[in-house]
Design a protein around this nucleic acid. Structure first.
Length: 227
DNA sequence: GCGACAG
DNA sequence: ATCTTGTCGC
């Protein structure tokens, strides 16, 4: 699929933060499409010793969640891990993988934050702008913390606010299991994102598209290392 | 100034 | 993120 190149990635940390403020004004918060037939999961695996990264995007049918397409990309990482700037480390390789997709999924799930971010520009939001597609962030731990813990039952939520506005939730995807942190990336809103993530979690805490992507990006990294 | 901080 | 087998618990 075609991806928009909104900017170059070779920035220092202060330039990266400034860019995030500018990009944040481009985010559109709205309900996800009412008819969804495909959901993609995107994730990246890193190898510290070689500074290499492997990315995978798995496209699953929805709501049946059967694998329909899988693409991967490998390359060198140029940016260090800095809380709030994850997108400059993992974004470029994810975008290379996105370009290999044969078609445009209805929505993409990311392993990280959307607008529940210091400057409203988590990786789901940032890559969503390049893709021009609806995206949702689903992280295993928070950047901005919810005020309280969600209830113990599947489906329970607790709001995450930034400057007084609702930007995401801690969501219990399985009863009595640690919550995940869901926030809209681009062309999505909180309630429809929560609904989608729950619909993608049939048996495990992590939504199925992300589980497949997580497994496959590790494989891609190993294959690249050997050959 | 201090603490917190996705992967 | 990643280094890593068995083991404790439901």
């Amino acid at each position: 699929m075609k991806v928009r190149k909104l900017h170059d990635w070779d920035l220092d940390s202060s330039g990266a933060r400034q860019l995030q403020y500018e990009l944040a004004s481009l985010i559109e918060v709205r309900a996800l499409p009412s008819r969804i037939s495909s959901v993609a999961g995107a994730d990246v695996a890193l190898e510290a010793s070689t500074a290499r990264a492997g990315a995978a995007i798995a496209v699953l049918s929805f709501p049946d969640l059967a694998l329909r397409e899988l693409v991967t990309a490998e390359g060198k990482v140029r940016f260090p891990y800095v809380p709030g700037l994850l997108t400059f480390r993992e974004g470029p390789i994810l975008i290379e993988a996105l370009k290999k997709l044969s078609s445009r999924p209805d929505v993409i799930l990311f392993d990280g934050q959307g607008i529940a971010h210091f400057r409203g520009m988590g990786i789901a939001s940032h890559v969503g702008l390049f893709a021009g597609l609806p995206t949702v962030g689903c992280a295993k731990s928070p950047l901005l913390k919810p005020g309280r813990e969600p209830g113990p039952k599947r489906g329970a939520t607790s709001p995450i606010r930034r400057e007084g506005h609702l930007v995401g939730v801690a969501l219990r995807t399985r009863s009595n299991v640690r919550p995940v942190y869901v926030s809209p990336g681009h062309l999505a809103d909180v309630s429809s994102s929560v609904r989608l993530v729950l619909d993608c979690c049939t048996r495990f805490r992590i939504p199925e598209p992300l589980r497949v992507a997580h497994r496959e990006c590790g494989k891609a990294l190993r294959r690249d290392k050997i050959s």
